[in-house]
Amino acid sequence: MPVLIFIDTAEGHVKKASLEAICYGAKIAEQLNTAAEGIVLSEVKDDLASLGKYGVTKIHHVNSVALNHLDAQVYIKVIAQIAETTRAKIIVFSNNADGKAIAPGLSVRLKAGLVSGAVTLPDTSKGFTLKKTVFSGKAFANVSVNTDKKIIALNPNAYKIETRDGVAEMIPFQAAVDDGKVKVTKVTKASGEIPLTEAEIVVSGGRGLKGPENWGMIEDLAKSLHAALACSRPVADAHWRPHNEHVGQTGIAIAPNLYIAIGISGAIQHLAGVNRSKTIVVINKDPEAPFFKAADYGIVGDAFEVVPKFTEAIKKLKGIA
């Protein structure tokens, strides 16, 4: 009865969030003295066997062109077949866009209790409990899963990727694949950019930047750190930046290693979306900005003077000046 990990791909490549899910699932398997095995649906370009180095011993691969685009209903049926064949009791997802689409329905199909947004390994000392984020990151809940089968959707950036020696055995899985009812007609990738939820470092701008024409220095800073761009809600609402950059309670919730907020006052709704970041840096000319209370490092000063110098200093440290 292995721990199964759903390995998510985009355009044939394994997503970073899935590598975290694999490492996490492998650790659970170790706790329970069993094996961790991966599930890959769709055609892939990456060498899947090499995912063994993250801890999976086998990969059940349904190499079907019909699965190249997500139709949750179709995916759920295929994953349920693999779960049945392997008699798995625990299935791990990343709590990313695909995980959110698939895991809830699979929970119903398998009658398996779902914890979405998990941030810790399960505590199996007394039952099976997991910590998850609630109240948009302002608190945690310890959730007990009371069913024999369990599904965990792990928050992105909540578990560290570690490698070891290992090669996964590839198991082609012959699944019955339904004709989907969801037809994908167009995919738009923000090409060359780092997906916000997967970024290690995020540089974010707020109203303090005065207008969209001033984003050049924010982009330069982001580039020097290989960071993703984000913004506050007023900035997205004013169409200075696209909505998919809006982080906060009603935007995207993120948990990068480093979050740099420039010209953002730090309203409670904004903090809710970013307070799981490991290190928070705030640059704001208002010393009373509430964001400083949630920050690890701060500069009270004019962003237009501070940011270009800060970028230069980073480039120097990284030897790219």
């Binding site: 302002k138 809940a141 009371n146 069913t147 701060g298």
Partner: peptide, 29 residues
Amino acid sequence: LTSIISFELPHAKAGVKLIPADQPEELAR
């Protein structure tokens, strides 16, 4: 299928370390 056993609040931050505005290179360091 699941039940909440308890809640907890995140640990409070230790406090912000402020760096003078004319020393952004110190922040980078």
